[in-house]
């Protein structure tokens, strides 16, 4: 029995190693947890991309749930995500609010002209200072915000059809069910 002990020890290490590999395939290594989940979204007052003089604040968007989608023309993964937003956006049951992050307005407009504009409201945060209050550290990121202005779900990285079906839509369903 004690002769087999080293073998069992080795098998234990193999199991630990395999678990580590499996775990890393299931989790985004760059995603960090947000402390803002189920807390009121931070206040903001940002110019709109196409109407810089008409600012939109958090209070203006209260009353209806929305998906705040952080994107930028310099962000490669946003280009991958955009067709998903275009296709799935109308089926979500919540409005899409675009959050143009650290982008030159001219670049953002050119990018939207090329890829399409699925957003009902388009906010522009050229300096990225407001985004810090949301804990944004890159693009794309998406926040599901309910009618009371509370963050109900956050996704870091591109929304894929898989994420939309398995995470976003269930989160929206449970939010709408609660509101009813």
């Amino acid at each position: 029995m004690s002769r087999l002990l080293p073998l069992f020890g080795f098998l234990g290490l193999v199991a630990l190693f395999a678990f580590g590999i499996w775990w890393n395939t299931q989790h985004d290594q760059n995603a960090i947890p947000t402390p803002l989940l189920n807390k009121p979204a931070p206040a903001f007052d940002l110019p709109q991309l196409y109407e810089p003089t008409a600012k939109v604040s958090k209070a203006d968007l209260l009353g209806k749930p929305y998906l705040l989608n952080v994107f930028a023309s310099w962000c490669i993964e946003c280009g991958l995500e955009h067709p998903v937003l275009e296709a799935e956006g109308p089926t979500l049951g919540v409005e899409l609010v675009g959050y143009n992050y650290k982008d030159a307005p001219a670049d953002a407009k050119r990018w939207l002209a090329e890829h399409g504009n699925p957003y009902k409201v388009l906010l522009a945060d050229e300096s990225g200072q407001t985004a810090i209050n949301f804990g944004v550290y890159g693009a794309p990121e998406s926040f599901l915000i309910d009618a009371q202005g509370v963050i109900r779900y956050k996704h870091i990285g591109p929304l894929t059809p898989d994420v939309v079906a398995n995470e976003l839509k269930p989160a929206i369903a449970s939010m709408l069910k609660e509101a009813r």
Binding site: I32, P33, T34, P35, L36, I132, N133, F134, G135, Y137
Partner: peptide
């Protein structure tokens, strides 16, 4: 910073 980006 922790309030926005967690203990990370």
């Amino acid at each position: 910073l922790v309030a926005r980006y967690s203990d990370y």
